[in-house]
Structures are given as structure tokens and as C-alpha cells.
Amino acid sequence: MYQFKNCQELLDLCKKEKLPISQIAIKREMQIFGKSRPWVRNKMKKVRDTMEEAIELGVKSTKKSKYGLVGGDARKVYKTINRSSNMLHSKVAIRAMAYAIATNEQNARMGKIVAFPTAGGSGVVPGVLFSTHEHMKSSKRKMLNALFTASALGIAILKHGGTFSAAKAGCQAEVGIGVAMAAAGVTEMRGGTPEQCLNASALGLKNMLGLACDPLGGLVEVPCVKRNAIGATIAMAASDMSMMGVESVIPMDEVVEAMMNISAGMSETIRETALGGLAITKTGLKLREKMGLPPVPKKYLDWKNRKPGNASNKCGGCNGCG
């Protein structure tokens, strides 16, 4: 049986069968759903092609989204690639950011994308994988396998009781899991062992833990689009560290557990409701009004009436209200 319930079992399977994660993922799909290898591969090819189309359209377009919050940044970043000598990041990382923004901008302007794991976190995986694929000039097969590896990690997370829903666990579950999946996929593409892949995803997800889902007006635009771009660089950093032999003290399964226990303590205001975090900043509220959306109920804005020294206040006590 090629079934696994968590990352550890996935790793054990890889070791027992002496196969990379991607191959275990294909065999599992064939076995459980009674499909042939070509069927599974062709279906993933469609996923790959859809991602590629979104990137190609996204890096060229200057069209703004309906409310004009995002659009055109992918092009801006993409144009600098060939004169990246005065940038701090490498060309691969800058291109990954451009591709991630391209995907999410396409999503915001109602283009076709793959929800991987969701629409809000759809930029990280294609950004990292397509950019690295171009950089390494690796075969198309390797690109496809990296997508299988990323998806297998997603399955292991779900089976371990994790979620992809920001409404349940905040942005850590969308962009965060995107980062973990991209880190695993890209590590296999670079020739890392299954252990290094899972280690990379643990390093990646650890850096996304606790991330709030606080989009302006509840739209998948600000800060989602740029979070995907910077998430892509985190995935690459995690993969690099893992390839250099740096190990995560906390194994991947336990990082997923941490994500879920953090989500249990997360206020609903930062779980996709647009009632907390960036969504209720001065600029956030101003833009919300401009969009014509109903105002945020007063009880969520009690920081506005904050009195110094009032401990019962939910407010963090910055100088914002002054």
C-alpha cells in the first residue's frame, strides 16, 4: 500500500521503496483511485500548463483588478530581471517573485489559475518551481515531478488534520502551506533526498506560523498578492538551507500541529473576515470606504476609543490613535 497519514509515514514509504516523494504520490493516486500512470501524469500536465499560461499573461499585463488595488507589479518585477546586478536577491529569486505576483494578479483580475492549495495562496508553488526550472534548464519531467511532490506534501498535511482554509487557520494555512509545498517540490527538483524535502518544508512553514488573514475589504488582493511573492523567497531560502544540511529541530508533522494549535487561539477578526489586522488600519478602512463596502462594526474598532492604561482594552497599545 502506498497510503500515508502524515509526513513521517510518507518518509518511511520513500525509504522502504527507495523512491522519491513524487513517485510515491503517483503510485498512491494510481492505487487508491484506480487510475493509470498516464492518466495521473496527463492530469498534472493540465495543472502545469494552466499555471504556465497564467504566468505568461500575468507578467505582461498592466490591467488593474476591479477595485484597482493590484495589477502591474508582476511586469515591474519581471522587467528588472536582466539588470538584477544591483538587487540583493539572485535572478532566480526575483523571477520567482515576478511569477508568483503574476499568478495572483491574474487571479485578482479573474484569470484562470490553479488553486494550489487555494486561490489566495496560488502564486508560491508556480513561482518557485517555474523559476527554478528555467534556471536549472531541467527537464519537463522534473518539473512535473516537483508538482507531484508538492501535492503529496499537501495530502500529508490534510491527512494529519491540517487545513488549507484561511477562514479556519489564517494565512499560515494558505500562503504558509504554499511555501511548505513549494520548498518540498523545489528541493526534489534540485536533487534533494525525501528527508531534505520534508526538512525544507518544515523550515519554510515554521517561518509562516501565526500569519493572520487580514485582507483589505475581504478581497484576495492586499496583502495576498505580495505575500505570495515574498513567500516564494522564503521557500527558496528554506530549500537552500536544507540542501546545506541545516536541520529543522521540529519535524514537519509537529509544525503542522503547531499551526493548528495556533489557529485554535486565533481571533475570528484575523480569519478572512476583514475585521482585524491590516484590514482595519487607517489606510485599510479608507480603501474599504472607497470600495463602497459596508463599514466595519464599531466593536471591532475599539482601539479608536482607547484610553491609556485601560487593561481591558483589546488594543495592543501603539501610538496609532494618538
Binding site: A25, R28, E29, I32, F33, V40, K43, M44, K46, V47, T50, S65, Q106, N107, A108, R109, M110, G111, K112, I113, V114, A115, F116, P117, T118, A119, G120, L147, F148, A150, S151, A152, G154, I155, L158, K159, F164, A167, M181, L219, V220, E221
Partner: peptide
């Protein structure tokens, strides 16, 4: 059971998997 394509999918028109697709 969870499929690979529950993670890698659906292929959809944006912007939100729950609010659009």
C-alpha cells in the same frame, strides 16, 4: 480519500476558491 488533485486544483477562474468557484 484525498486526491492529489484536491491539493493541486481545482483549475478555476479567480479570485476566490470559495467565493467564486
Amino acid at each position: 480519500d484525498v486526491s492529489l488533485f484536491d491539493v493541486a486544483g481545482p483549475i478555476m477562474v479567480g479570485p476566490s476558491s470559495s467565493h467564486t468557484a
